[in-house]
Amino acid sequence: MMSQNKPVEEDCHQKCKEYLSSLFGESTSEYFLSPSSCSKEIPSWLSQLKDDMKDHTSALFLWDAIRQHSTQILQESNTEPSMEITNEIVRRVTDWKTLKKQDHLMHLLGVKYMFRCAQRNQVISALLLQQNPLFDYGINNGPN
C-alpha cells in the first residue's frame, strides 16, 4: 500500500514545489519545502518578518504574513496594461469587427448573386418553354 502512494506523493510534492517557486521564487520555496538542516539563504522579507515577530511566532501568524506577502506580489503583477497594449487590443477588436462586417457583406453579395442567377434561369426557362413547347409523344392521349 505504501509503495502505491509514493508516486502520487512525489507528483504532488513536485507540483507544490513548482507552484511555490512560481509565487515566491526558487530560494524561498526551497526554504519552506526542504526539511534539511543545512544552511540555506533566507529571503530578506522572511528575515524581516521573523525579526518583527520576535517571540510571537505562531503558525497562524506566519501563515497570515505569507498570505499578505503573496497578495502583494499578485497585486504588483496585476498592474494596468500599458497604452501600447491597450491600443493593440483596440486595434485587434476593430480589425476583427471590420473583417466580420466584410465577411457578412461578401456573404450577402453571394446570396444576391445566387438569387439573380435563379431569377435569370427562371426567365430563360419560361422563354424557352414559350418559344419551344414540349413535344407531345402521345403519352397522355393513349393509343389511337
Results as ranks from 00 to 15, higher is better:
residue 1 M to Q: 09
residue 2 M to H: 05
residue 3 S to C: 08
residue 3 S to F: 11
residue 5 N to C: 12
residue 6 K to M: 13
residue 6 K to S: 13
residue 6 K to I: 13
residue 7 P to R: 07
residue 8 V to L: 15
residue 12 C to E: 11
residue 14 Q to C: 02
residue 15 K to H: 14
residue 16 C to G: 05
residue 16 C to E: 12
residue 17 K to F: 03
residue 25 G to W: 08
residue 27 S to V: 10
residue 30 E to H: 12
residue 32 F to T: 08
residue 32 F to P: 00
residue 36 S to G: 04
residue 39 S to I: 08
residue 39 S to W: 05
residue 43 P to Q: 05
residue 43 P to I: 09
residue 48 Q to M: 03
residue 49 L to R: 02
residue 51 D to E: 14
residue 52 D to K: 07
residue 54 K to D: 01
residue 55 D to W: 06
residue 55 D to E: 09
residue 58 S to L: 02
residue 59 A to D: 05
residue 61 F to H: 07
residue 62 L to F: 01
residue 64 D to A: 07
residue 65 A to I: 02
residue 66 I to H: 02
residue 70 S to K: 13
residue 71 T to N: 12
residue 71 T to A: 10
residue 72 Q to I: 04
residue 73 I to P: 11
residue 76 E to M: 06
residue 76 E to Q: 12
residue 77 S to F: 02
residue 80 E to S: 12
residue 80 E to N: 09
residue 80 E to Q: 10
residue 80 E to M: 13
residue 83 M to V: 12
residue 86 T to I: 03
residue 88 E to W: 02
residue 89 I to Y: 05
residue 93 V to W: 03
residue 94 T to N: 05
residue 100 K to D: 14
residue 100 K to W: 04
residue 101 K to T: 04
residue 101 K to Q: 13
residue 102 Q to D: 10
residue 104 H to G: 05
residue 109 L to N: 00
residue 109 L to S: 01
residue 110 G to S: 08
residue 110 G to A: 09
residue 110 G to T: 04
residue 111 V to C: 13
residue 113 Y to I: 06
residue 114 M to Q: 14
residue 114 M to Y: 07
residue 117 C to R: 13
residue 120 R to S: 14
residue 123 V to N: 04
residue 123 V to L: 03
residue 124 I to T: 13
residue 125 S to D: 12
residue 127 L to C: 11
residue 127 L to P: 14
residue 127 L to D: 07
residue 127 L to T: 11
residue 128 L to G: 01
residue 130 Q to S: 07
residue 131 Q to G: 07
residue 131 Q to S: 01
residue 133 P to T: 09
residue 133 P to A: 11
residue 135 F to I: 15
residue 135 F to H: 14
residue 136 D to C: 10
residue 137 Y to G: 15
residue 139 I to T: 14
residue 139 I to M: 07
residue 139 I to S: 01
residue 141 N to Y: 13
residue 141 N to H: 14
residue 144 N to V: 04
